[in-house]
Amino acid sequence: MHTTEITLEVNGETRSVTVRNADTLLYVLRDKLGLTGAKPGCLNGDCGTCTIDVDGNPMKSCLMLAVEVQEAKITTVEGLKYSSLQTEFVDKFAFQCGYCTPGFIMNANALIKQYPHANDMLIKEWLESNICRCTGYKEIEEAVKSALATAQTVLRQQ
């Protein structure tokens, strides 16, 4: 078996783990590091429920090998720790079964950080990467827009 001992920086912590080279980052996060926030969905890069943040960009962890991200900073939904975006998802009832929620949150979190003044077209382009089988898109959109408005207020006050 081809394995490699890798060191990952996940949610601000340095974690060392031995992985099969063929292991996806999603598998390693969940089964080796116990971070089950990123969900396995299609495992094919289509549904977005495994989305995490890698160096500030949303990435589908089912489309990454763990061995290829050794020098990257990884954030999973566990690393957000009660962010205002998560609060907006609760306040706006932006979930039903909740399975897609971590993926949507990680994608939207990166959007807000990169483009705090994102317009409707940009929001749509980014969030099209995620699927909600409960079809809670309207509430998700409201939560993201509310979080963007909060981010814009914070920027104005700085």
Partner: peptide, 12 residues
């Protein structure tokens, strides 16, 4: 290329 796959996938 903005129409290929989806935005997150295009990061990869």
């Amino acid at each position: 290329i903005s129409e290929i796959a989806d935005h997150t996938a295009r990061n990869k």
